[in-house]
Amino acid sequence: MTARAVARWQAAAPYAVGLVAALGVLAVLVAALGGDAPAAVGSLVRASLGSAAGFGQTLNKTAPLLFGSVAVILGLRAGAFNIGVDGQIYAGAVAATGVAFLAAGLPKLLAVPAVLVAGAAGGALLGAVPGLLRARAGVSEIFVTVMLNFIALFFVEYLSTGPWNDPMAGEAITRAVPPSTTLPLLGVRVGAHAGVLLALAAALAVWWLLYRTVFGYEVRAVGDNPTAARLGGIPVGRTVALALVASGALAGLAGAVEVSGFHYRLILGLSPGYGVMSILIAVLSRRHPLVAIVASLGFAALVVGTDSLQRSVGLPASAVFVVQAAVLLVLLASEGLRRAP
């Protein structure tokens, strides 16, 4: 075997360990709840990947996770931690819904792109806040993005229970967006919408941006060594700010896709933890957008699968976070062990 192949296997080994760890942790949790662990794992795979309907739902979940994880990756590459993906998803969803209501009369070919662009703009706006604060005042984006998450959530609550509320629903749900603004389906019974294709395109676009453009080069340079980058003439502050804006735009697209592809409304529970999952996926993918495609699919399958276990074993929803985080911790530890003297 060539040295390169050996290196590839060595790089992949932690992922295999991670996968085993995931299944192991899951088996332990299931057993602790009195369930049949092997059967649980089997039903998990079946529910998420084994049936057309299940796979469709997995694809639907992949879309926001992929958007979110490449958003985080873009930020990480510039050395910034975008923990505000949840808030940016909501901001994008708000903008998308608003534009959707306005675009009621437009033909589908115009309405859908308008809604998507609005979503990106909404997310970008929210990403600009930490970006500007970091560029101008050197404020860490970690705290700002988290606070903005809360603020965005309250704003969505205001809209979905106030001016945009659907009175018949009696809940924090807005009126439906016009049919001309909805994304096409990939198969009616399967239930998957075109959003996953958009997310795929976004991941490829981010890859191309990072590795084939000057801006991408600058982003990576700033992320790897800001001092050297500054000395090399790259405007560090501006680059980081732009990266955060772009990161926000990607997350905002996730929000737009969820509204126009999945719910057809703006709802309060639009993002059930996509933000934190995106961070985990980004780290797991070693900050590489193409690896994130596979990782997002894997996480989506895990979410869909563990949810089906809720019915058979009584595994609570929070278990999926435990499994995901445990996998990452194992991975981080194994890499650390390899590196330690």
Binding site: V276, F321, A325
Partner: peptide, 30 residues
């Protein structure tokens, strides 16, 4: 993780954040 294995503190911190939140509600349920 940070000292012995020299992993990035924010990354590990965020991962532990997710783990703790999930573990909290899991333990409560169990």
């Amino acid at each position: 993780y940070a000292v012995a294995w020299r992993r990035d503190q924010v990354t590990v911190g965020l991962t532990l954040y997710v783990l703790c939140v999930g573990l909290a509600s899991l333990l409560y349920r169990m």
